[in-house]
Design a protein around this nucleic acid. Structure first.
Length: 271
DNA sequence: ATGGTAGATGCTCTA
C-alpha cells in the first residue's frame, strides 16, 4: 500500500488563562482547523485542568503541565501522540514551560515541542534583574540541549517571548533596550534556531515585512497604534522545511471578545 | 520620563 500523504496543521497560542478563554478555542478551530493546538500560559494547576474542554472540541489526545497562577503549557491533538519524558527541567525550576510529544503521523513520528520562554521582566540587565537572567539562561540551556541532541523531523512552537528580526517589532531602534528585542536575546534566539531549525513563518512572510503576534493590553487602540511584536513562533527542522505549505497568523483574534494579548499562529505541512 | 491593562490571587505578583 502506498504511503498516504497527510496534511498536518499545528497551531500555537498564548491563551493567557485556559479556563477564562476556553470558549475562544471554538473560534480558533473554526478559523484554521488545526490538528494540534499548543497552548501557553494556561495558568491552571494540573488537578484543576478542565479535561472536558479538549474532549468536547474533538481533541481526544491531551497533555498538560501547569501550576497555580502562572505559566503552564498544554497540547490538544486529533492525532495520537506519546508524551516524551526525557526533556530537561529547564533551569531546574519546575515551572511548567515545556512539553514534548511524539506525534503518530504517517511515516516516521514527528516530535513536537511546545515552549513558554520566560518573559524576562522589565530591566535588561542580568545583574540587576533575575528574571532577565533566567530568560537568557533558559535560552542558552535550550540551545545547549538541542545542540547536543540534534533534532530531526521536529516542530518547535510557542511563546518564545523574543522578537528576533528588525521587522518583528514596530520600531527596531526604539526597542533595542526593551526586553524582548535586546541583542543578547535576539542573538540567543538565533543561536537556538541554528541548532537545526528554520523559521517556518518567515518562509512565507518576507523579512522586510512587519509581522506581529502580540499587541500590549496597554494600548487603547491596538490596531491603530500597531505597536506589535512577533513573540510567538513556529520552527521546523530542515528535513521538514520542504513540507511547509502555508502559515496563518490570526490577527483578528486580537479583537475577539475578552481577547488574549497574543494571537494564534498556525502552520500547515504536507507530510 | 511615565503610565497605561489584564489575569490569578487574596492585602501583590507576573506579564
Amino acid at each position: 500500500m502506498a504511503p498516504r500523504r497527510r496534511r498536518l496543521r499545528v497551531a500555537t497560542w498564548n491563551i493567557n488563562s485556559l479556563r477564562l478563554r476556553a470558549p475562544l478555542l471554538r473560534r480558533l478551530i473554526d478559523g484554521v482547523s488545526p490538528d494540534v493546538i499548543c497552548l501557553q500560559e494556561t495558568k491552571v494547576a494540573d488537578p484543576l485542568f478542565p479535561a472536558k474542554v479538549p474532549k468536547s472540541l474533538g481533541f481526544p489526545f491531551v497533555a498538560f503541565r501547569g501550576m497555580k497562577g502562572y505559566n503552564g503549557v498544554a497540547v490538544f491533538s486529533r492525532v495520537p501522540f506519546e508524551e516524551q519524558s526525557d526533556a530537561p527541567d529547564w533551569c531546574s525550576k519546575g515551572d511548567c514551560r515545556h512539553l514534548a510529544v511524539r506525534l503518530d503521523v504517517p511515516g516516521e513520528p514527528v516530535v513536537l515541542h511546545d515552549f513558554y520562554v520566560p518573559a524576562g521582566g522589565d530591566v535588561p540587565d542580568p545583574a540587576a534583574n533575575p528574571k532577565y537572567r533566567h530568560k537568557l539562561d533558559f535560552v542558552a540551556e535550550a540551545t545547549g540541549w538541542f545542540a547536543t541532541t540534534p533534532p530531526a523531523r521536529s516542530i518547535l512552537v510557542g511563546d518564545l517571548n523574543i522578537a528576533p528580526l528588525e521587522h518583528d517589532v514596530w520600531s527596531h531602534r526604539q526597542l533595542l533596550k526593551v526586553v524582548s528585542h535586546t541583542p543578547p536575546e535576539t542573538e540567543g534566539l538565533t543561536a537556538w534556531l541554528a541548532t537545526g531549525f528554520t523559521d517556518a513563518v518567515r518562509r512565507f512572510v518576507p523579512a522586510e515585512h512587519k509581522h506581529y503576534t502580540w499587541w500590549s493590553y496597554r494600548n487603547i487602540d491596538w490596531r491603530a497604534s500597531d505597536r506589535g511584536r512577533r513573540l510567538d513562533h513556529v520552527w521546523v527542522t530542515h528535513d521538514l522545511a520542504p513540507a511547509l505549505v502555508r502559515q496563518v497568523t490570526l490577527k483578528d483574534a486580537r479583537d475577539w471578545p475578552q481577547p488574549s494579548d497574543h494571537v494564534p499562529v498556525c502552520v500547515e505541512l504536507a507530510l
